[in-house]
Simulated scan of single mutants.
Amino acid sequence: MGVDPGTQIMGYAVIEVRGQHVTVLRYDVINMKALGSNHAVKLKRIFDRMIELIDEFLPDELAIEAPFFGVNVQSMLKLGRAQGVAIAACLSRQIPYVEYAPTKVKQSVTGSGSATKEHVAHMLRQTLALPPIAEAPKLLDATDALAVALCHHYQKGNNATAAGGKSWGKFLAENPDRLNAATTKKSTPRAAKKVV
């Protein structure tokens, strides 16, 4: 699972990897603009939606973009909280995570660490054979999250922080009683694939 953190719009993407073949399962945004200015409400929305996505897709790892240091201090604090909540949701499900600098993500997808969001989205559409999207400008945060997930795949996941050294799949196998009926159906072992 890849995440591009934000306090107004947070992008997320889920990919499935079998060998070197990448399938995009979903990429979209969590739009919090309608939630007003209460930051706590937005953080709760991020946590709740992340848990829903984790329970639906059972990702093995989280790749998240690190905050960019060029923004003002207040914005950076809020962005850091949003990132922390997304990470906490994954850690609550024993999912390891890794952070990537924005320049690293852009470099791995486009070859340039200074690429624009539009260039990243264009390269992803070519690389992953994504269909053109009519609302592409509105989904730039989603394609950024997809770029984070793809960057992690390119890095082979070798630098994932071990959250207790367990993947979500391993946690499910060791704790079948911790699942509710809705997620039990999706917890079948996946031997040859990896969901990021």
Rank of each mutant, 00 (worst) to 15 (best):
P59M: 03
D177G: 10
A134R: 11
N180S: 11
F68M: 12
F47K: 12
Q8R: 14
A63R: 05
M123G: 05
T103W: 11
Q74T: 08
S167N: 07
A13V: 02
A173I: 10
E61R: 13
L179C: 05
S112F: 15
A101I: 04
K44I: 07
A182F: 01
L139I: 05
L150P: 13
L150I: 14
A163E: 09
L128E: 12
R81M: 08
G36I: 12
P137W: 00
A88M: 03
I51K: 02
A145W: 11
T188I: 09
I87N: 09
Q94H: 13
G11K: 05
E135H: 07
V41S: 05
A89R: 00
L128H: 10
M32F: 09
K33V: 11
I9C: 07
L139D: 03
G70H: 10
M50V: 02
D4N: 15
D48L: 05
S112V: 01
M32I: 03
R18A: 15
L130D: 03
Y97W: 05
A192L: 15
Q155P: 15
A136T: 10
V3E: 08
G6K: 08
Q8P: 00
C90M: 06
Q8I: 00
L130H: 04
W168V: 01
T143L: 14
L130R: 03
G36F: 06
G165M: 04
L146M: 10
I95V: 10
L140Q: 10
E174D: 11
V73C: 15
T188Y: 08
Y100V: 13
K193G: 13
V195A: 01
E118H: 10
A162T: 01
A88K: 02
T7S: 05
D55K: 04
G113A: 12
V24P: 13
Y12D: 04
G80E: 09
I64C: 07
Q94T: 01
G164C: 03
K156H: 09
Q74R: 08
T161S: 12
H153F: 02
G84R: 00
R49F: 02
Q107R: 10
K117F: 02
A145F: 13
V41Y: 03
S112Y: 12
N180D: 05
